[in-house]
């Protein structure tokens, strides 16, 4: 599973890196235009650090490394936010070499709580939470219905995508985009978009 998670995180990193321009363009419209550059820089650093963990089986350890690396290398708000999310997700997965629906649910919950605490944000403020909270809820509905990890993540990713669409309809009240006020409406949130892209990459990875 360690190797499997290694590949999953590599896939997420590659998707973020290949969407660098798109994320940066979204951010340039309503922010400081660095989300793609920052996220790509973060996952380039993760790629280098990961090489030392190729044979590591403890999922918590791998996620902790990813979180620490994002915190020190992203540079923008996404660094501490996603970094904290990965660090918190590392707690329920610590010592585990396999993940089931229940553990992933706990990891998502811990990650989202971490993002809310770190960003002092709630849903509806045009942030990554507008993708992640609906994704978590969809995941848990799948979990209640005894669905597979893949089916739960598919539902989560679909809800995240709808969340990204929702961010186009609202005004930003957190982060750099809040300086734009009403002018932020009509644009999709870059952070919600990167969250959705990560979930969708996991889905596609599991389908392979």
């Amino acid at each position: 599973m360690g190797g499997y998670l290694y590949e999953a995180i590599s896939a997420v990193g590659e998707t973020i890196i290949s969407n660098k321009q798109m994320l940066t363009d979204l951010d340039a419209a309503i922010g400081d235009g660095d989300h793609g550059i920052n996220m790509a820089r973060g996952f380039e650093a993760v790629k280098i650090k990961m090489q030392a963990l190729e044979t590591e089986n403890d999922i918590g350890k791998i996620l902790k490394m990813v979180g620490m690396t994002l915190i020190s290398s992203v540079g923008g708000a996404a660094g501490p936010l996603y970094g904290t999310a990965f660090l918190r997700a590392a707690a329920p997965s610590q010592g585990k070499t396999q993940l089931d629906v229940e553990t992933i649910g706990l990891m998502l919950e811990a990650a989202i709580t971490g993002i809310k605490e770190r960003g002092k944000a709630t849903r509806g403020e045009k942030t990554m939470l507008d993708a992640l909270e609906p994704a978590y809820e969809a995941f848990m509905e799948g979990a209640k219905a005894d669905k597979s990890v893949l089916a739960c993540l598919e539902a989560a990713s679909e809800a995240a995508q709808q969340g990204v669409e929702f961010t186009k309809t609202i005004v930003a009240t957190k982060g750099r985009a809040s300086y734009l006020g009403e002018r932020s409406r009509g644009h999709q949130d870059p952070g919600a978009t990167s969250s959705y892209i990560m979930l969708q990459t996991l889905v596609e990875f599991l389908r392979r």
């Binding site: 660095d34 920052n38 820089r41 915190i71 020190s72 290398s73 992203v74 540079g75 923008g76 660094g79 501490p80 970094g83």
Partner: peptide, 13 residues
Amino acid sequence: GMADGGIGTDAFK
């Protein structure tokens, strides 16, 4: 700034 001299903030720094 960042370790690589770029614009950003680094919690470890």
